[in-house]
Design a protein around this nucleic acid. Sequence first.
RNA 1: CGGGAUGUGGCUCAGUCUGGUAGAGCGCCGCGUUCGGGACGCGGAGAUCGGAGGUUCAAAUCCUCUCAUCCCGACCA
Length: 580
Amino acid sequence: MRLSKYYVPTLKEDPADAEVVSHKLLMRAGMIRKLTSGIYNYLPLGLRSVNKVAQIVREEMDRAGALEVLLPTVQPADLWQETGRWDYYGRELLRFKDRHDRDYCLGPTHEEVITDLVRGEIKSYKQLPVNLYQIQTKFRDEIRPRFGLMRGREFIMKDAYSFDKDEEGAEKSYFDMFGAYKKAFSRIGLRFKPVQADSGAIGGDFSHEFMVLAETGEDTIASCKSCEFAANLEKAKVVVPDGPDMTAADCPAMEEVATPGAHTVDEVCAFLSVTPDKLIKTLLFVVDGRPVAGLVRGDRELNDVKLRNLVGGNEIEFADEALVRKLTNAPVGFAGPAGLSKDVPVYADSELKLATDWVAGANKGDTHVRHLSLGRDCEVAGYADLRVIEPTDACPECGGEIEFTKGIEVGHVFKLGLKYSEKMEATFLDENGKTKPMIMGCYGIGVSRIVASAIEQNYDENGCIFPPSIAPFEVCLISLGGKDQDVADKAEELYAEIMQMGVDAAFDDRKERPGVKFAEADLIGYPMQLVLGGKGLKNGIIEAKDRKTGEKIELPLDNFAEAFAAWRKRIWNNWGLETN
RNA sequence: CGGGAUGUGGCUCAGUCUGGUAGAGCGCCGCGUUCGGGACGCGGAGAUCGGAGGUUCAAAUCCUCUCAUCCCGACCA
């Protein structure tokens, strides 16, 4: 590709509305342009990267036996009504009507459509398993799109759906995808980690997220320094250290104490001169419309996903101020487990069994209680792991040390089970002629998000640093033959040679000053730069720069193809990649 | 949806408080010089100051409404 005939509108300054590096650099390198909030145009360079990611994903999906299809973006409401998601999915689902006043939506995901397709075609266990995937544009009307391609409303995603006749098959499909994902992300050249994720009502280890490790990630991962354990913060189990059950132990009679104006844990502690670990924090939630209370120690954080899963709910949110008043007869800040409305089941974090004589809210304005015993003074519906893991906690699998890292979710594998097949009657006849629902799994990869996360993980003050596997072009050949026709001619010759090798090259043959060419090559982040100048030509060499390390070497012009091939191989290898 | 902020040539911003003929840098076009890390000189084009209404002799500037975008929060594969 000749840059003189290409379209790369670079920017010298950061766009005003970009916050994160990937957004700034994608804009500055002329790869994307915003059309409207959360919706972007992909320019030639950006599209090339997206397509390269998609192609790697496609190859690994095919290799794993999945079959590519293409499903519509516009979906009829009645399918969504079948699964109940038309009502449940909420504002994120962009709905509209056609000229006949029929309801439609833009697909944020395709479980309904794929299940509908399969149920019409597959009737026998002999046709199973089947795994269908597509690479396509999704639309989710995010409450708050941000960070450029990282969290857009419209984005490109690969989604796959597997259908199996039994549990063993479903498990195999799941782990086949898990393996394919590892291969795909490795080939893309990103540092990533599969982590256990929340699988809602399904339970077990049948949900993993693939995280690209980057400082700027929105998610936090808890991982073990000594074993393989890694989990999303919301999923990470907390193991309570052994100790005697103190819920029935002796404790002075509970008494109320006035704590005027003390709402927060810190304020109460300061007022009563106790440490936060002597306090019980009582948090009121609404799960699927019903109130629930969760108890954790004053110095801990309650994990709402764990509480939601414990009570088997779908949607959990904090009780609003009015509800708190109704349930506790007090303003926010004075809720406690003792004397709470009987309509509210109280669940306590397991850790609370290990001590007694607590301080807690009194369900009365400006008042707390002390000497509270959970066994004596309140009714606890159950004890369970309810809190968020902390770096000081032990690894739940091996007891080792835990560390926290930031990550960007770029893939998710999930066992769906019968959720959709039952509701939509996607059934088949088994070996015994019995009708059974298919067992499903779904597997997503954020294709456009990967391009952004590659930049989040690899950039410097001069611009992007793309892995060669997904760079818009692997190499940029820069000709400094301004008025030196010999240089220009030789560059042409080299370009032809590189093209002949089948290498993806950009040829900077523009009439620009050298500084401009260098700066733009760095900004765009071609992993390899070849610079041919007058002096080099005279000395029979061309300069080769590794964008990642900045290392420059000289390649001989005699035998250029061979020297270049060897250098190129080294660059790929340094990224942990194989040349194709 | 709550809190905060911003809308001025293609881009980044000044000008708004204190109303008086719309600015700079970058980019773009032309000419010349320059040519190994985003050059320089000269000459140009390009803006109904987000939109609507109002106050005023006069509005980018003051008032009202509205739209859009961004940030924080809640939310989210």
